[in-house]
């Protein structure tokens, strides 16, 4: 029988201002960005940045809850591979992300509608 080491996943709720320092901390701890996604729930954006520890298979998720009008700093300067995740958030949900290193300007997903999963136009 194989040994199994899989601690519980962690969900940390943080403020928007703490995002960059916390991401830096996770990166320095040797963790890998496993995924980043947005969700539009009850008029708020919930951004999740999940970091994986490949030695223990633990997943640590950073959760930032913001208003649709708020601007989010990009983490691509720290974690370059977040480019695709952030462009996805921006194009499918309309999250305002500042300073993405490679900003596709709505050309990553070649779809007709702008921000189809985000807030509807009449709500905004």
């Amino acid at each position: 029988m194989a040994e199994v080491i899989c601690p519980e996943n962690i969900l940390e709720e943080i403020q928007l201002g703490e995002l960059l320092p916390t991401v830096m901390e996770k990166k320095n701890a040797g963790m890998r960005l496993a995924q980043a996604c947005a969700a539009f729930i009850d008029g708020k954006f919930e951004l999740s940045y999940s970091f994986s520890d490949d030695k223990t298979y633990q997943l640590v998720t950073l959760r930032v809850v913001i208003d649709p009008s708020e601007e989010v700093p990009s983490i691509t300067e720290i974690v370059p591979q977040a480019v695709f995740y952030e462009n996805e958030m921006k194009e499918l949900f309309g999250v305002k992300i500042q300073m993405i290193t490679t900003d596709y300007k709505d050309k990553f997903y070649r779809i007709e509608e702008v921000a189809p999963f985000g807030p509807k136009k009449e709500d905004a």
Partner: peptide, 14 residues
């Protein structure tokens, strides 16, 4: 190399 996707985006998540 700059990839882009979305040619078969079906919106399953929505």
């Amino acid at each position: 190399a700059i990839p882009s996707v979305g040619f078969i985006h079906r919106g399953l998540e929505s």
